[in-house]
Design a protein around this nucleic acid. Structure first.
Lengths: 249, 249
DNA sequence: TAGATTGTTAATCGATTAACAATC
DNA sequence: TAGATTGTTAATCGATTAACAATC
């Protein structure tokens, strides 16, 4: 039996399936086929079954999947059965936004504390009433509240510094809004969110995508390319939700 | 000559290369090799060259790439040569955060207006002094300011309604913070940002990743799986930055 | 020229999908 | 049983990487 190699995209899709299963459960649906669930999640039914097959057998042939059981199973696979405490570093607008984002609580993520590097922000109060703490309290609170997840929302230059402190405190998963790649040990996972890059890919599609043009029209000679003029490259199309997850850097 | 099929991941990486080229330019570096630039962007040098090769020839054999020329070329490919106007729908905390995010202006994105569905918010003023406008002004402003990009930051249930209005107004690229997939015509691109799913994949790695275990330990029998107990599946590892971009839905 | 580095092809690797036997 | 749908293998598709001829 070979070692399983699970695509990162599979994990992302598991989250998506979970979300639709929750909705089905709310609607009182008890059983769902791969066909039906896959169509809601906008994927191929074979892919849904393949994704599940990495982790075991969850369905009943000829019948489908128990909504409730599959929901429990996926939640367990993802590790989102219990509540998880999360801390935030950076008392700026992104942190304010996250604190008020309703989706986290629904999925069992609870924000425990907000920290900041800037002394002037220490003691100020966020919209939800949380008081901003100094970084030297971080390790203590992480231990006390058993926190494994952290958000970095500080200016890029400070990303590495904050990352080091988080790693030292025992944080195991980091969601970073600072686009600079930072170095962390192999056993720590990082996920980056980069708004500008997302807009860039939309811009690419707008600029080039309106009409698909094949490479032959492009000309092979660099000198012939006039930048800023009306070039057109093929539209990028992708169904995959392959967000990047790195376990080392 | 075959039709080019450009991976979505290539476009994402182009954005990353561009960012590092800007930095090199600022530092006065004039020429860079694929080796050097790739190492900064954390990709394989062959991949960098391959990515560029979809669009033409930009280097000099035996020498490398002119930092300035390559920067211009990539900017042109992405379509980020000129400033682009962007509107925001949803006068909530995410919009506040985006308005104050410094990265957008640097990349030439300019926020033109903020709209909201809730009448009570119309006329209120955002942190940066922008006054919240009613949706019935949207189409007019989009035309007037030649806006092609929009951000959706409203509650999930209202995502489709807002999307329809945006499409009607002529918006061509949407960055949505409402996780619900919405329907748009083929010529409109959408990019979703979903914080919860990102945290879920971190949680998966934390729950299962600490020690890699192969599938043989897992047991093939569903009945044997005790949810909530100490299972362990392989860590997801991925270097790819394949964010999802859809041109239709 | 000799050394270096690109551009591109071919090989590899990985992920998606089709098809179907297993089986409820 | 007949019909349905899973779980899984094999085929396809696509993306990454290695290798090297082209060439500055």
């Amino acid at each position: 039996m070979k070692k399983a190699k699970i695509p990162a995209a599979t994990i992302i899709r598991l989250s998506v399936y979970q979300r639709y299963l929750k909705r089905l459960l709310t609607n009182g649906v008890q059983v769902v086929s791969s066909q039906e669930l896959a169509s809601q999640a906008n994927v191929n039914p074979a892919q849904l079954r393949k994704d599940l097959s990495y982790f075991g057998r969850f369905g009943v042939r000829g019948v489908g999947y128990s909504v409730n059981t599959l929901l429990q199973s996926i939640s367990s696979i993802l590790g989102v059965m219990e509540e998880r405490n999360v801390i935030l570093v950076g008392a700026g607008p992104i942190t304010q936004a996250l604190l008020r984002h309703p989706g986290f609580a629904q999925q069992g993520y609870r924000f425990e504390a907000v920290f900041d590097l800037d002394e002037r922000n220490i003691g100020t109060v966020m919209d939800n009433g949380m008081e901003v703490q100094p970084l030297n309290k971080l390790k203590e609170i992480v231990k006390e509240k058993n926190v494994e997840l952290a958000v970095i929302a500080v200016p890029s230059e400070q990303g590495q510094e904050v990352g080091d402190i988080l790693v030292d405190a025992g944080i195991k998963g980091i969601l970073s809004f600072s686009p600079n790649r930072i170095k962390v040990p192999k056993n720590v996972s990082i996920q980056y969110v980069d708004f500008t890059i997302l807009l860039d890919s939309l811009t690419y599609n707008i600029s080039n995508g309106r009409r698909g043009v094949d490479k032959t029209q492009e000309g092979k000679n660099v000198q012939k390319l006039k930048w800023g003029s009306e070039h057109s490259w093929p539209v990028v199309q992708s169904n995959s939700n392959g967000y990047s997850v790195t376990c080392n850097s």
